[in-house]
Design a protein around this nucleic acid. Structure first.
Ligand SMILES: [Mn+2]
Ligand SMILES: [Mn+2]
Ligand SMILES: [Zn+2]
Ligand SMILES: [Zn+2]
Lengths: 142, 142
DNA sequence: AATTATATTAAAATAGTTCTAAACTGTTGA
DNA sequence: TCAACAGTTTAGAACTATTTTAATATAATT
């Protein structure tokens, strides 16, 4: 199946018709060799740089939300004032570099299984995510 | 040391003068028998209900931020469009109830030590937090 | 008490996100 | 062929959490 066909399938499964703008968004999101993290602002900038297509903010937000709902993207919980999104939809964890404001993936395999002994009656765990904040390691101990 | 004195000390250590408004904020935050989680909007509502003091949003934000900087409050990373704050400043983890939008503490002791095998050169880990999303456990498997 | 530094406040500004409503596009079937 | 329709894009308005501004008020210092 060609890339273009994959995008169209992803869009269809998300309940969206494959329009020019949406396919362009797919190219940026799903054509990358590696998964990556992005903010909406960054995504718009990439689209503007790569294409002569103009895509409105509303279309970007709508499409991203449709993909999240369908499971093709993940939203990453950060205390920032803006949302971070992730094209890596496997279960994994994150470093958050507080100096660069950048997320770095941690494979599930790189963290021992997390066993939470506390239980909440009537509730079940749907997901467990670790966020490790990192900063520069300045060994200088003046 | 009386409560009032404790508040004044907390304020002074945060670099703030003990004004009527700030002491009131301290009463709400630090007088509770239990620690709790709150949004700014909720905090303002509590103050309005408890006191005949009117406190502006700007003062609430400034004071909360000063306490965070000094370590008397913590900000909790959630993907929501608003920040959650925590009067429990010990190292601990959270359940996030996606139905009630409520945070529930998990003591550090209730989670096995988290060992992250991946290392980032030149960076060190400053904090590790677990967020477990929970939902109702409907056993009904029609 | 006078002086100075800091705080409070209402209101404006900012910024991310969502909504609206009008113009546009592609498809269908008469 | 092309009118009608369903769905899409878009600019801009609206919304909301947070921050900033600048005038007034209060606290600390002398
Ligand atoms: Mn969202
Ligand atoms: Mn903040
Ligand atoms: Zn990731
Ligand atoms: Zn907590």
């Amino acid at each position: 199946m060609s890339y273009a066909e994959q995008y169209i399938e992803k869009l269809r499964k998300s309940g969206l018709r494959p329009t020019k703008q949406r396919v362009k968004i797919c190219e940026v999101l799903f054509d990358a060799e590696k998964t990556f993290h992005f903010t909406i602002k960054e995504l718009v900038k990439i689209i503007e740089n790569q294409a002569n297509i103009k895509v409105s903010l509303a279309t970007v937000y709508n499409t991203v939300h449709a993909f999240i709902k369908r499971g093709y993207l993940k939203e990453i919980p950060l205390n920032a004032s803006q949302s971070y999104y992730d094209t890596n939809v496997t279960h994994h964890h994150h470093f958050f570099d507080e100096e660069d404001n950048k997320l770095i993936d941690i494979d599930q395999d790189d963290v021992d299984e997390i066993n939470i002994r506390k239980k909440i009656p009537g509730k079940k765990i749907r997901s467990v995510e670790v966020i490790a904040k990192i900063v520069s390691d300045n060994q200088s101990q003046k």
